[in-house]
Design a binder for these strands. Structure first.
Ligand SMILES: [Mn+2]
Ligand SMILES: [Mn+2]
Ligand SMILES: [Zn+2]
Ligand SMILES: [Zn+2]
Lengths: 163, 163
DNA sequence: GGACAAGATGCTACAATGTTGCAATTCCAT
DNA sequence: ATGGAATTGCAACATTGTAGCATCTTGTCC
């Protein structure tokens, strides 16, 4: 089995290896973050998780992803990283039907509807569903965002337990 | 001004008064509840609050209403009454942008969109807005409910603090 | 490269919103 | 009026998120 070296910052490590391997080949996450502010370990790890997922993740699920990498990430720091990503418009916050926020990477500013499965609790992105929402809002309101929330059973859950 | 007698159950009260005053003129709340199950003090009080309100209320707001009547209602019992009302289809649960549920009485089974004010946190019912949601859901999903969630500033908040 | 200051992190508490278990009480069909 | 099932009240616990603050990092400027 291959042996991996955890990338380490210990003073000895770099001294004998090959010449500086050029720009560290910034990951997409790193590039995105750098464009908006400081690049930190937890921000990168969190955004990596979001980018790798095809559905919105809650804090627990993200923590699980991070734990899988072996590195430790503080709970509070993860919350703060998520807040920051949302502030920067890099991620979006989605209200779940439990009372935990879910987060997803914003892809090319593309907004879409979400389907909340009452059975498994997952939130699925419906990139294809073009809602054609024709809202005629009364005078006085300032509309910031319109979101279509669908509830029911996802294909997986609908197939098992018919009904 | 007319004088109302609080309906009392004290042993002395009924003994000398007029003959049994017929059915106690059940309030709308009492009637609704009786049609679905047991009529209890807290269920009636909670539903009264919801029926009296023109916008969805969270637990805190409901508790405040109840407190105003002078009667004490246990926190947990109120939660359970709300759960029950929702189960029975008498009330609806609405996810707020904070993480507290809001509740409203279901009127004639009428579903409508809601506007969440980011500034004052209120949720306003938009009974008039007919969303014309044309959802083309992919195969396999079982759709239970489609809800249109609007966010921004309500007329009050938009007027003050323009922008 | 090294020093510096703003910004980010890691604790430990704390807050807000519900939920669970269980003994005591209430409701309502007989 | 009675009895048994449904409901309540209370105290403890769970989940999800925030605040304060001392310490450590990051990016920048020399
Ligand atoms: Mn999505
Ligand atoms: Mn409403
Ligand atoms: Zn599902
Ligand atoms: Zn407002």
């Amino acid at each position: 089995m291959l042996q991996f070296h955890k990338q380490t910052r210990s003073p000895m490590a770099a001294s004998r290896s090959r010449p500086p391997p050029a720009p560290p080949a910034a990951s997409p996450a790193q590039a995105l973050i750098a464009a908006h502010g400081r690049v930190t370990r937890t921000r990168v790890a969190v955004l990596d998780s979001l980018l790798a997922s095809h559905q919105p993740l809650n804090h627990d699920q993200i923590a699980a992803e991070l734990a899988a990498t072996g590195e430790h990430h503080d709970r509070v720091t993860v919350y703060r990283a998520l807040d920051w990503l949302v502030e920067q418009g890099i991620a979006a916050r989605i209200a779940g039907s439990d009372r935990a926020w879910k987060f997803e990477a914003v892809r090319r500013g593309h907004r879409h509807a979400h389907f909340h499965c009452d059975t498994c609790g997952r939130v699925l992105c419906l990139e294809a569903v073009e809602p054609a929402i024709a809202v005629a809002l009364p005078e006085g309101f300032r509309l910031e965002q319109a979101e279509l929330v669908l509830r029911g059973a996802c294909p997986d859950c609908a197939r098992n337990g018919e009904r």
